[in-house]
């Protein structure tokens, strides 16, 4: 795919997502960055703001298999990963793949699943494979988990363990749309019948996304910027309000998302602006629930580290 073609497909993706989620261009931009950086996404917001809509739209545009799990306390790990079943005909065990074997997995209200089920996602998210009865089954190379959670109804919910939070690339809030967007949304909704949301078209042909993700991975991050990243990571560990600072895995994720951000901005090198732009969603998911005012803390951390300007 030519450089032009890549830009075109990204632009198309942006357009599709924006038409699905009105007035949330900044969120869409981060979602694209997350997709390009091969990260998993966690939406943390109130019900009805379009989390699921966006996830579905994303799955459609990416063009892969979309699977969805509605998490409830009685959901079992095998409901996600799949299981071996005895074929009565052949008298052999046969593997029935679960929803994780899709390209995009939407885990709705993930905090309603039991920890046991949640942890079943661990391996899938980190290593892109699941092991059942000692046999490792590789997942799709563009496998992406989009999880949503509802912060309000905490009754009967199991907060995600910190170890699992670290496997997400970022956490996003969508927030209420503005007045104009809501008006437009209502107008669009008239006459759509039972479908409820606007259909989007597929953007990527097979293998295209993979190629793009490889390109993102090769965006240059020069030493001053790498040092800046490391300094920021250390600053998160030294900040008084943060119990658990950024892990090395988190740092790698941060760099990857910054690369994606630079790629979206049509650059083949990362600048400190990219690092700062993605700092909040990347750090928020890792600080977990222990930090009250994430925005303020992230701001303080960024303020405490000098941007490298060469001299």
């Amino acid at each position: 795919m030519s450089q032009n073609g890549k830009l075109k497909s990204i632009e198309l993706l942006r357009k599709c997502l924006n038409s699905t989620l009105l007035g949330k261009e900044d969120v869409v931009e981060l979602v694209i960055a997350c997709l390009l950086s091969k990260g998993h996404l966690l939406f943390d917001d109130l019900p009805g703001l379009g989390k699921t809509t966006l996830a579905k739209a994303l799955a459609t545009t990416v063009g892969g298999r979309f699977s969805r799990v509605q998490c409830t306390p009685d959901l079992l790990p095998s409901d996600i990963t799949g299981f071996n079943i005895l074929n009565q005909k052949t008298r052999e065990f046969e593997f029935r793949p679960g929803p994780v074997f899709g390209d995009v997995l939407l885990a709705d209200e993930i905090n309603r699943a039991t920890p046991r089920t949640q942890s079943a996602l661990f391996e899938a998210m980190a290593e892109r494979q699941v092991t059942i009865d000692g046999i490792a089954h590789p997942l799709s190379s563009t496998f992406m988990v989009i999880a949503t959670q509802n912060p309000v109804e905490s009754h009967g919910a199991y907060p995600l363990p910190e170890a699992q939070l670290d496997r997400f690339a970022m956490k996003l809030q969508i927030g209420y749309p503005n007045r104009g967007s809501e008006l437009e949304m209502l107008q669009k909704n008239i006459g759509t019948g039972s479908q409820g949301y606007q259909a989007v078209e597929r953007v990527f042909e097979s293998g295209e996304l993979e190629k793009l993700q490889e390109d993102v991975a090769s965006v240059a991050v020069e030493l001053p910027v790498r040092e800046y990243l490391v300094d920021l990571a250390r600053a998160t560990r030294e900040h008084r309000s943060v119990t658990l600072g950024l892990s090395p895995r988190g740092l790698i994720t941060w760099q990857r998302v910054a690369q994606a951000w630079a790629f979206i901005d049509q650059r083949d090198y990362v600048i400190p602006d990219d690092v700062q732009a993605v700092a909040k969603p990347v750090l928020e998911v890792r600080f977990g629930g222990s930090v009250d005012n994430v925005e303020k803390v992230v701001h303080e951390i960024i303020e405490s580290v000098a941007v490298p300007t060469g001299r």
């Binding site: 600048i271 400190p272 602006d273 303020e303 580290v305 941007v307």
Partner: peptide
């Protein structure tokens, strides 16, 4: 003055 944490562009 450029605060230390502000990037050049901003």
């Amino acid at each position: 003055p450029r605060p230390n944490h502000k990037t050049l562009r901003r």
